[in-house]
Amino acid sequence: MTENISNCCTDRTVLDKIAAVARNWKGRKDMLIEVLLQAQKLADNAITEDVAEVIAKEMSIPLSTVCNAVSFYAMFSTEKRGKYIIRMCKSAPCHVKGAEDVIKAFEKVLGISCGETTSDGLFTLETCECIGVCDRAPAVMINDEVYGPITPEEVINIITNYRQRREEA
């Protein structure tokens, strides 16, 4: 079960933070998804094998149970991702409003294909299913923020804003 999860070294201090979160829910299997969501935010937006192992150990649940959940839910990634995850909705209401053209614009502006991360580690571009803002289609989520309706022409400004945020940080 674990062979699909990328084996990499997560920073020790990050693992310690994740361990502290998981320890609060020892034996509480029902809190696994919550712990995974929090862990992913701490660890480059991914549940890598070392992260999964820490969670399994601290929550006292089998590693296979952790990996089972990770592989099932779309929000979890086993590969490290960028600081900002761009999730472009490709479900039907966005599709008929031209989502594909917006995806192409993101690919062009970022210089990557869907599923890839920019070399500076800032952006990962993904498509996803309905994000529940069909009244603002076509729509995209960048981390927890929603943009819509957006045109291909607006993509460059959105990306520039995020790049500036990093410089200010």
Binding site: S91, A92, P93, C130, G132, V133
Partner: peptide
């Protein structure tokens, strides 16, 4: 878990 594409009333 309002996941049906085309629905956002619960939101």
């Amino acid at each position: 878990d309002e996941g049906e594409p085309g629905t956002n009333k619960d939101r």
